[in-house]
Design a protein around this nucleic acid. Structure first.
Length: 254
DNA sequence: CCGGTTGTTCAGCG
DNA sequence: GCGCTGAACAACCG
């Protein structure tokens, strides 16, 4: 469930527990001293990219749902939660996720301007970070959480399709207008994703992700595992342009 | 029933 | 000590 917009939905769903005191805390997140949460008040819920932050006075809990994480609000599953918080009026359960207790303020840890869902998102800074990594492939850069925190594999595929950019372009080889579009559409698509996910219609809106035919060209879509992390990538070689490289990669050389 | 995945971390290597 | 890569991990869907 976990790209940035899904975490925003989670953050909104748990907001009613703000300023509530944890009565009992449990779970099998062995590294987290859960008993320390008991009797403490949740001051706020924040999100950064794919992280949900449960903020207390002197520390915060960082939840990352990874690929298979799930949660239940005022409900539970048969399995042991990684983290369970019981309040006077309800409970919060997180399963199969990464849980960390961090004794810092989120402001000391996170660059809010790098989160595509955050009002503090800074397009210009993203552009600078991209220029600094301009030799890398756009399919990798969109997944780079230091640049586009919250963007995941679905958003990556859809943004590349929308902007008609071939995933194997190096950022530096894109024309100026495409460089800008890539950044703009990463944010636009993330917010479209949010609205569609809330309406339970997200999948209906996929144009490339999991698709086999290009809606624009009616050509078969390619499915390849691309980039340093070899993630599933859907693209059309008819309308997603691979721009000529100013500095071609020499085979056998980096 | 099995294969595949909306993701990250870390060990091991050069 | 670094940067890179591949393995490991996980649960649910089709």
């Amino acid at each position: 469930m976990p790209e940035g917009p899904s975490i925003v939905i989670l953050k909104e769903a748990v907001a009613p527990f703000t300023e509530q005191t944890v009565i009992t805390a449990g779970g099998n997140a062995s590294k987290v001293p859960v008993e320390e949460l008991e009797g403490k008040k949740v001051r706020s819920f924040k999100s950064w990219g794919k992280h949900l932050l449960i903020c207390f006075d002197d520390f915060y809990i960082r939840i990352h749902l990874l690929m298979f994480g799930s949660y239940r609000i005022n409900d539970n599953k048969a399995t042991t939660p990684r983290l369970s918080l019981q309040f006077a009026e309800g409970e919060l359960n997180f399963y199969t996720c990464s849980v960390q207790l961090i004794r810092q303020s989120p402001d000391e840890v996170y660059d809010w301007t790098g989160d595509v869902m955050n009002p503090a998102w800074d397009h210009k800074k993203a552009r600078e970070k991209l220029e600094a990594k301009s030799g890398k492939l756009v399919c990798d850069l969109l997944l780079d959480q230091d640049i586009f925190a919250g963007v995941g594999n679905i958003i990556k595929n859809e943004v590349l399709y929308r902007t008609r950019v071939h995933p194997k372009n190096r950022f530096g080889d894109l024309p100026e207008i495409k460089k800008e579009e890539l950044i703009t559409e990463a944010v636009n698509y993330a917010f479209d994703f949010l609205e569609w996910k809330k309406a339970f219609t997200l999948k209906n809106h996929w144009l490339a992700h999991t698709k086999t035919t290009c809606l624009r060209c009616h050509l078969p879509l390619h499915k390849e595992y691309l980039g340093t992390t070899k993630r599933r990538t859907f693209f059309c070689t008819g309308c997603q342009i691979l721009y000529a490289s100013a500095n071609p990669v020499v085979p056998g050389k980096k």
